[in-house]
Amino acid sequence: MRDAKLAEAMDAESWIIEGVHYQWGTESFRQADLIFLIRPKAYIQDARVISRFMKTRLGLEQGNYKQSFKYLRVMLLDWNRGFRRKSIPAIMELTEEYRAKRIIVQHNLEILQHVRRYMQGKSVLGTSD
């Protein structure tokens, strides 16, 4: 089902796939026009996790799971650090073949700037795909 949903998304005229599920999305890398890897500074990534934790614990936002201090520790120490140490190098290796269209950014707004430039370049070339 998951692979069918991915294939369905990639059949669309334009698409964006977001997530850390890079191990099973390799076909999307081949078909993508641009590949973005968002790498915020570690302290920003950790601050976002803490902020999300606090907002959920205070009932200001709804979470997908029960927020506990144990899980906060897991998110900060295991997941965030593990992602930086293991997953990012794995993603870099997996996308090395597509490095010409791989762009590493720190902020989401940088993505918009790159997409605008890309779309302007396509307009100048007179292509519409």
Rank of each mutant, 00 (worst) to 15 (best):
R99L: 07
V115I: 15
R85F: 04
Y22D: 03
S68C: 02
D11H: 08
K70G: 11
M10D: 01
R30G: 06
G82W: 12
K101F: 05
M54C: 15
F29K: 01
Y43M: 12
K66W: 03
A42K: 14
V124P: 00
K122T: 09
P89N: 04
Q62F: 08
R73T: 15
R102T: 13
E8W: 11
R48N: 14
A42P: 05
A4E: 12
A4Y: 06
D33T: 06
I44D: 08
I91R: 00
D129L: 08
G63F: 02
Q113S: 08
K41G: 03
G19F: 10
T26Q: 12
Q31R: 15
D3E: 11
L37K: 06
L72H: 00
R30C: 04
A9H: 06
E96F: 07
K70W: 12
L94C: 09
L94Y: 03
T127E: 03
A4V: 08
I103Y: 04
R2H: 07
K66E: 00
R2M: 13
G19H: 09
F29V: 00
A7N: 08
N80T: 15
G59T: 12
S128G: 05
E61L: 13
N80H: 10
M92Q: 15
L76M: 11
I91A: 02
Q23N: 08
G82Q: 08
V20G: 04
F53Y: 05
G59P: 01
E96S: 12
G121L: 07
A47I: 08
Y71F: 14
R99A: 11
E61K: 14
Q45H: 14
R85K: 14
S68D: 06
K101G: 03
Y65Q: 12
M75H: 03
F29L: 08
I103N: 01
H107P: 00
D78P: 00
Y43V: 11
Q106D: 09
V115T: 09
E97D: 09
E96K: 13
L112M: 11
D46C: 11
Q113L: 08
E97Q: 13
I91L: 13
D33Q: 04
D11M: 12
R117A: 12
F36A: 02
D3T: 08
Y71Q: 01
L77N: 14
N64L: 15
D129R: 13
F36S: 00
L60I: 15
K122Q: 13
I35E: 00
D11K: 10
